[in-house]
């Protein structure tokens, strides 16, 4: 059975392709994103309250290394096989080393409807995975020396709403604990899938708008946008198994590895690598990889995890 939230995504995409008048008001989209980020953070925070933080440190370090590695692996493919400009290759590599919270939320819904449990501290790993690839992207594009304003890069990355709300949610969940949060549960947990449905409706519209960019920049981006997440998904599933994660946790880490950023990284790249063409990276991450992951990728990563855990 196809999950209804996926049908909302398809509705949005169809409406966008048909040039419908449909448009979520910017403030509504903003609110929907804020609620999603907070509820994901809160869920993770509750779990942090339950277990000793020290036990998570090896996992945290491992995913940070994975974030660096994925961006570094993507770069030569983009630069030498795709023959992209250095700045463009670096920027796209950063998108694919980082993560998409929207994709994570769909994976939460997917595993939830199959009643597969996963390590609830996953949002902590999600936050950690956002950052390393951005640093790799900037260094690949400009080197260490040439006057990068690291202060404003840090401000852009850590002051962005993604990190602020995820970290904020983690802290609030951690401090308040499961009992303390019961009063706000109806909004953040019970309504999660409804909010996700609205979010995916808008994502469908946004995805459809990227098709133009894709048409201009061709086959390589489409191929990369599908092959790269499959490859990263394998790495994520392998790492999850090595770290001793459950079946659900392995599928989740595979999904995180496979997802490509479309909020935090584009903003950081626009400021730090201005000569990279944002149309290229967004066409790949939003026009190809996001819909691929939502429709086919997540079930594939789940199958990979099931196969490894055999």
């Amino acid at each position: 059975m196809i999950d209804p939230v996926i049908l909302f995504f398809l509705l949005g995409a169809a409406a966008g392709l048909l040039r419908s008048e449909l448009r979520l008001p910017a403030a509504v989209y903003e609110l929907v994103t804020i609620v999603l980020l907070l509820s994901i953070g809160l869920k993770g925070g509750i779990e942090l309250a339950r277990q000793p933080f020290g036990a998570l440190v090896p996992q945290m370090l491992a995913v940070v290394v994975m974030g660096f590695a994925l961006a570094l692996l993507a770069f030569p493919v983009l630069r030498y096989i795709g023959r992209l400009k250095r700045a463009d290759a670096a920027s796209i590599a950063a998108h694919y080393g980082s993560v998409s919270v929207g994709t994570y939320a769909v994976a939460v819904a997917y595993l939830g409807s199959r009643e597969v449990a996963f390590e609830e501290h996953m949002p902590l790993l999600l936050v950690l995975l956002e950052v390393p690839a951005i640093l790799v992207g900037i260094v690949l594009a400009r080197g260490f020396s040439r006057g990068t304003r690291w202060g404003s890069v840090a401000h852009e990355v850590f002051g962005g709403k993604g990190i602020v709300l995820l970290m904020g949610g983690l802290f609030i969940g951690w401090i308040a604990g499961p009992d303390g949060l019961s009063s706000i549960e109806p909004l953040f947990f019970d309504l999660f899938k409804g909010i996700l449905a609205l979010f995916l409706l808008e994502m469908g519209l946004i995805t459809a708008a990227q098709i133009g960019g894709l048409r201009r920049h061709g086959l390589f981006l489409v191929a990369f946008g599908i092959a790269m997440p499959l490859f990263s998904g394998l790495i994520g599933a392998g790492l999850g198994t090595v770290l001793g994660l459950s079946l659900g946790g392995t599928a989740m880490l595979a999904t995180l590895a496979a997802s490509a950023s479309y909020i935090a990284v584009p903003a950081a790249m626009r400021m730090s690598v201005p000569d990279a063409n944002p149309t290229l990276s967004l066409a790949a991450s939003l026009g190809v990889t996001f819909p691929f992951n939502v429709l086919l990728g997540i079930p594939i990563y789940y199958s990979i995890a099931t196969w490894i855990h055999g």
Partner: peptide
């Protein structure tokens, strides 16, 4: 540089 429709952050 194309239509900028303010549908979401990077497009605003």
């Amino acid at each position: 540089r194309g239509a900028r429709s303010a549908g979401w952050e990077t497009d605003a």
